[in-house]
Design a protein around this nucleic acid. Structure first.
Lengths: 266, 266
DNA sequence: TTAAAAGTTTGGCTATATCGAACGGGAATC
DNA sequence: GATTCCCGTTCGATATAGCCAAACTTTTAA
């Protein structure tokens, strides 16, 4: 949200957006709850909710308002028009087959990353265990860049200034006790990643979960996002962690990049 | 959009929403284009675009603005919290295996329907043909209810008043020359559907495509959405159309409904 | 180099978003 | 079953801020 320069922005629109964010965070809410949380008059909250509902963006269940499916339309649209989307889907799917682990493609959005394409090997799907599913990346979920393999891989491909901006905006909050929370340490990590060609998240976002990530570039050299392979620490270890997955990632990214270049699909 | 009762709604928010809709329709646009289309001053369009961009909801590429990935967050959230979502996924997936055709689950949203879960049999996926993919339902795409099997199945489960409302709001636009465009004819069709227990879309939305759809109900009797099986007219024909698919749908819906009831997952 | 068109900024006017209070309905309490 | 409380909704007044038009700047095209 943050209204960087007051006066330059439409504050009413900001309020409406804050209403939406509140509904998402609280998993639906009533007029009074929204009013209290945003510190606006009850009537104001009511009017915003009513407007959004009448325009088809919210669902009203009794007197609780919920985020509507209309956003799925925008969201899927944005997802599908991502440069190289179809190639990315193929790349993610074949890398899953190869590694038999979860594979994600993430994109940067305003200083954070979010998963655009995900895939996990079949047997993982059918375990149906709650413990597996809580690890799994979900499409549309935002992550901090400094605490994920993909995020660090992307940061490592950015000029220093842009990294600074990102850290200034989002800070370096700790997700586990292994998260990098120090600016210096982050920059050292980033140059190590540039040297290695890939990034590792060693339980820096979720305990028990390791990921290996690598940035994907468009033909013009700009960063499209990053590809990653993730799994529990007991499987992602030793030679798998240090040689197999990085090698598979290298091949996958190279192939993806050349496919995108060929098809001009971006 | 439509501002039913002026004064009761926040018009500034409506303008912002119209900006978003314009960007989605035009696949990105510039300040002047948006201003012309919405018939507002250039500075107004600019301010809205800037606000949405600064809040992280739009991406600015050069001087074109695009719908941002932020909406994917809301969209996926809304999708996943749909009553019985996990059960629906399983139902769709196993019905695809059984019928070897495309299966969709759609939900109603403000008088139209949109696909929430889709699945298609593997070999269809790998043909990769453009002609197949243009038929395919896409998550987040809206359809008119009167012109689809799922939509008609849902309408048939609604009281007459609600059907009237829907038709009043969205009309009966023709998508092909087989689309029902007459109010009387629609009501006759709906009572036939109630008698049969399922609905058929015989090239009423897309030429060459037939679908069979059936409404899915929550334990309390309310309509959750509808399940459908779709395919090209040369495959969805004869006994397949009249007996096999309806029977498979019946079983699938019954199983889905009882699973939802059991798990209380709604 | 010039001209035209688009993006951005500014300031004034007026519409309108906001607030607070009052109304009305529904549920829980006694 | 009456009362009380809480919440959603409506209403009116005020001041805010969204809107427009015009000026200014930058970019693109000629």
């Amino acid at each position: 949200m943050q209204a960087s320069d007051p006066g330059s922005a439409v504050s009413t629109t900001q309020t409406s957006l804050e209403v939406l964010e509140t509904l998402c965070e609280l998993d639906g809410a009533r007029v009074t709850t929204v009013a209290d949380r945003l510190d606006v008059a009850k009537s104001t909250a009511h009017k915003h909710l009513r407007t959004l509902e009448e325009c088809g963006y919210l669902r009203k269940e009794g007197n609780r308002y919920h985020i509507g499916l209309r956003f799925l339309h925008f969201g899927e649209y944005a997802r599908r028009r991502w440069p190289g989307f179809e190639c990315i889907q193929n790349a993610v799917s074949s890398l899953t087959e190869e590694t038999e682990e979860e594979v994600d493609f993430v994109a940067e959005d305003h200083g954070r990353i979010l998963t655009i394409v995900e895939s996990y090997h079949k047997w993982v799907k059918y375990t149906g265990g709650r413990d597996e599913s809580q690890y799994r990346a979900r499409i549309g979920t935002y992550y901090y860049m400094h605490a994920t393999a993909t995020g660090k891989a992307i940061l490592a491909a950015y000029p220093t200034g842009r990294v600074e901006e990102t850290v200034d905006r989002w800070g370096l909050p700790a997700k586990t006790d292994r998260t990098i929370t120090d600016r210096e340490a982050l920059f050292e990590e980033l140059s190590a990643i540039r040297a290695d060609g890939y990034a590792v998240d060693d339980e820096e976002y979720t305990d028990g979960l390791r990921s290996v990530g690598k940035a994907v570039r468009a033909p013009d050299g700009s960063v499209l996002g990053a590809l990653s392979v993730s799994g529990p620490t007991y499987r992602i270890d030793g030679a798998v962690l240090e040689r197999e997955i990085p090698a598979a990632l290298d091949r996958a990214v190279e192939e993806l990049e050349s496919e995108i270049a060929e098809r001009g699909a971006y």
